[in-house]
Amino acid sequence: MDAYVEKDAVEVSDDGRRPPEDPPVTPREAPDHEAPEDPVDAGTEGSGGSAGTTGPGTGIMALSMPYQVVVAVALAVAGVFACVHLAMVFLHVAPSNTLTKRHGEAVGDWIYPEFEQNWKLFAPNPLQMNISLEVRAELATADGGHRTTGWIDLTAQDIEAIRHNPMPSHAQQNQLRRAVDFYLNTHTDDGRPNGSRSTFSEQYMRRLAMQRLYALEGSDGRALGPDTRRIQIRTVTRPVPAARWSDEKARTNPGYRQFPWWTITETDRSVGDRASRTEAGR
């Protein structure tokens, strides 16, 4: 049965045009298949265009009974495996349901980490606001005191790099954007951690911010990074303005969320040196 299902599905795919007229490699192989053809071809590869395909010399029909049993067993195993895998992927992408509520762990064990996937692209609703990350730093001054910088918009740096860029880098389009998502997802509204990965996202955020601060210069022409003792981040949320052709009244004033001050450690700083070089390379 599995075989039957597989076969049909494959045939749907390539429109049934495939077999008699087009395989360009295989027909050459077919006639001399009886002979031990090109043993030297093999090397590290199974395909390499060897392995005759069409004709009587291949497949389960060309084999004697014991070998046929092996192929039949393999067929059954492969069929079951494919079905189970597809069922697991289906349950993974499907909304929470009776089955996943009961056996969610089994699905997760099968899927994670290598088959994880999320195809809710702009769904159920697309994001309708621009979220910016801003940072300010407390710098040690030469006289032993400290001063605080103004808010520096890190997202604006990304946007500038993306503008009129036919192929934006993941470093510009995804890294900070997803780090903010990661941080917001692992913290409550007032910035308290709410998951086992919160510390990861905090350190990640500090390192991202420090890397940018190393590449920025203060008013005195010195890089901000080396003097930074503490930093604070905030997110600024600006709703996309309603379209001109729409009669909706969208909120237009930005919303701010401020997070606690962090003391910068040597671990956070180790990204700095590389940073200036990378930034320069942009």
Binding site: A3, E6, K7, D8, T53, T54, T58, V71
Partner: peptide
């Protein structure tokens, strides 16, 4: 069907 999936490299 069994012959096709074991005897040919489809597509």
């Amino acid at each position: 069907g069994v012959q096709a999936v074991t005897g040919r490299t489809l597509a």
